[in-house]
């Protein structure tokens, strides 16, 4: 896990996003809350990474910082070859537009637009045309061809979330961040969405980072990073749902022993 600064450039081609010694502190003095405590993670290109942890562990904060939605107090975050520190709002906006895709728990589709328009929205905002072959592939993969001209209110939750997935993928971003993508779905719709996400990693080489507290969802990932109290506690590769659950159960112990090490 730990890296020496000298290797960053050399291996950057294989890394989609990276956080180095990231601290996130809210408030000051007595009211000070440390959300992230010297977190360093490296997200490899073409990998499906899940971030897990109990409530308040800092997993959402980490994702927001990685995605350029939030600023870090200390440390460095980069997406692809771009360092986020020092970017203006316009620069961050452009970065999000061109290199990042989002999937939210609340779907967050625009009610005034059809499914197709929602999917194409990031490209329209950027003033770009979709690559027709890739667009077809995405539509085919999410299985929404019949529903492209429906409004979000005419779609089920699972369908809405698949629209959101297609929207995140269609611009071929460096990395897609998914925030509890199955949190609002029943298990079957959730399984469909997760299967689709894994599929896009395997077949298209998409990089996906997913925050979740559902061990079953996490088991779809290639790698699970566990956070507790703002620190990376441990990680699992090629996890099973049982292994994730087991780790979650022991997470307080792990956190404590880690604190002891320091």
């Amino acid at each position: 896990m730990t890296r020496t600064p000298g290797t960053i450039t050399a291996s950057s081609t294989g890394v989609a996003a990276r956080a180095t010694d990231v601290w996130k502190v809210y408030g000051a003095g007595e009211a000070q809350v440390v959300a992230l405590r010297s977190v360093s993670v490296e997200l490899r290109r073409g990998q499906f990474t899940a971030i897990m942890g109990p409530s308040g562990s800092g997993k959402s904060t980490l994702m927001h910082c990685l995605a350029g939605l939030d600023t870090v107090t200390r440390g460095e975050v980069s997406i692809g070859a771009t360092k986020l520190a020092g970017l203006s709002d316009a620069g961050l906006t452009k970065l999000r537009r061109d290199q990042v895709g989002f999937i939210f728990q609340q779907f967050n589709l625009l009610p005034t637009l059809t499914a197709e328009e929602n999917i194409l929205l990031p490209l329209s905002i950027a003033g770009r045309k979709p690559d027709p072959a890739w667009y077809d592939t995405v539509i085919e993969t999410v299985g929404l061809r019949e529903r492209l001209h429906h409004r979000p209110s005419q779609l089920s939750g699972g369908q809405q979330q698949r629209v959101a997935c297609a929207r995140a993928l269609v611009s071929r971003p460096e990395v897609v961040f998914a925030d509890e993508p199955t949190g609002n779905l029943d298990s079957r719709s959730g399984a469909e969405v997760l299967g689709f996400l894994r599929h896009s990693v395997r077949d298209f080489g998409q990089t996906i980072v997913m925050v979740t507290h559902d061990p079953n969802a996490a088991s779809y990932a290639d790698r699970v990073i566990f956070l507790a109290d703002g620190e990376v506690v441990t990680e699992l590769r090629e996890p099973t749902a049982d292994a994730v659950l087991e780790t979650m159960k022991r997470i307080d112990v792990l956190a404590a022993s880690r604190d002891g090490d320091v």
Binding site: L69, D89, A90, T93, K94, R96, R97, D98, G101, F102, F104, N108, L110, P111, L121, P122, I125, A126, R167
Partner: peptide, 12 residues
Amino acid sequence: ELGLLRAIGLRR
């Protein structure tokens, strides 16, 4: 909605 649009790249 505005937050979403800004998140996916709508400039100010």
